Simulated scan of single mutants.
Amino acid sequence: MNEEQFLRTMVETVKYGKNPNKNELLTLLRNSEIDFDKTGVFASKYRHFEEYIDLRVPVPMLEQAEFLRDDLEKLTALVYRSPGNYEYAGLNIKPKPVELENIPPQAEHDVVFDEIKDKIIQGIRRAEYTIWVAVAWFTDIDIYRELILRKIDGLNIRIITSDEPTNQTLLADFERNFEVVKVPKKRYNRLHNKFCIIDLEYVMHGSYNWSNTAPNNNETWATALDRDFVKKFADEFMELFVNNYERY
């Protein structure tokens, strides 16, 4: 197992596990690197030497990594596979070289069919700068409240939604708090998008409307951490926003 495989295995183990710090761990690992630190120090096994795993973390995330150290150490020990005559000795948390921090993280794609509302809320909570929502029906007050909390944190939030009688529950609240574009229903055409862009680098999309009845339906919700892929959604969002903004 090489360094890239090791880190990838850590990410996959966290992704499909139930660790309460899943989101924080995934964000940390996706921006980090792994080095194998082989030593000449004898280990407990006969004719084996100690090997450390160095987790190279972006400098701004070092404090968070220390906070998650227990989870990271357990995860590293679980993933470790002895290469010949070496034995796992422990985890070192070290700074990632600054000149390498601008390398984009490896693309990640996933899809879920259950507990979609929780996935949406998790995505909203991971945002740091911007949240752009294009959802035909948006009447779920829990998701709305999550957006209000992120607005209080200083994030830029834009919403595109359908201007129809069945979608009026929260529209007035949206317009008081966010940048909002309402798309009118036309004779043979209506807004039917369901996607959300986070920080212009992560997108959630699928069949799930952000409505009160959606949790009772059979739905699909996909996520992607893939800048080229996300750019296509951002381009579509901007076109919808600009083309409909002047109406209101």
Rank of each mutant, 00 (worst) to 15 (best):
N2Y: 06
E4D: 12
Q5V: 15
Q5S: 15
T9Y: 04
T9D: 14
T9V: 11
T13L: 02
N19F: 01
N23K: 14
L25A: 00
T27Y: 10
L29V: 00
R30A: 01
T39P: 02
G40V: 15
G40W: 13
G40P: 13
F42L: 13
K45M: 14
R47D: 08
H48C: 03
H48A: 07
F49G: 00
E51Q: 15
Y52I: 01
V57A: 00
V57H: 00
V57F: 00
V59F: 10
E63N: 07
E63S: 06
A65V: 02
E66L: 09
L72N: 00
E73V: 05
K74P: 08
L75M: 09
T76I: 01
A77Y: 13
A77V: 12
L78V: 05
V79D: 03
P83H: 12
N85E: 10
G90F: 07
G90K: 05
I93Q: 02
P95H: 08
K96G: 01
E99L: 15
P105H: 07
E108R: 14
V111A: 09
V111P: 04
F113G: 12
E115I: 08
I116C: 00
D118C: 04
I120T: 13
I121N: 09
Q122S: 12
Q122F: 02
R125H: 04
R125C: 01
R126T: 12
A127Q: 08
W132Q: 15
A134W: 05
V135R: 09
T139G: 04
R145I: 03
L149T: 15
R150Y: 03
K151E: 08
L155W: 07
I157R: 02
I159C: 04
I159P: 00
S162Q: 13
S162W: 12
D163T: 13
E164T: 15
P165V: 01
T166Y: 11
T166H: 09
T166K: 10
L171G: 11
F174D: 08
F174H: 10
N177D: 13
V180N: 10
K182P: 04
K186G: 14
F195Q: 11
I197H: 05
L200E: 15
L200V: 15
M204S: 07
M204R: 13
M204W: 07
N209T: 11
N212I: 11
A214F: 05
A214S: 11
E219H: 02
T220M: 05
W221R: 13
A222T: 14
T223G: 07
L225Q: 12
R227Q: 12
K231T: 15
K232H: 07
K232L: 09
D235K: 12
D235M: 12
M238G: 11
M238F: 06
E239Y: 08
E239F: 04
L240Q: 10
F241A: 09
V242R: 07
N243H: 08
N244P: 06
Y245R: 13
E246Y: 14
R247Y: 10
R247C: 05
Y248V: 14
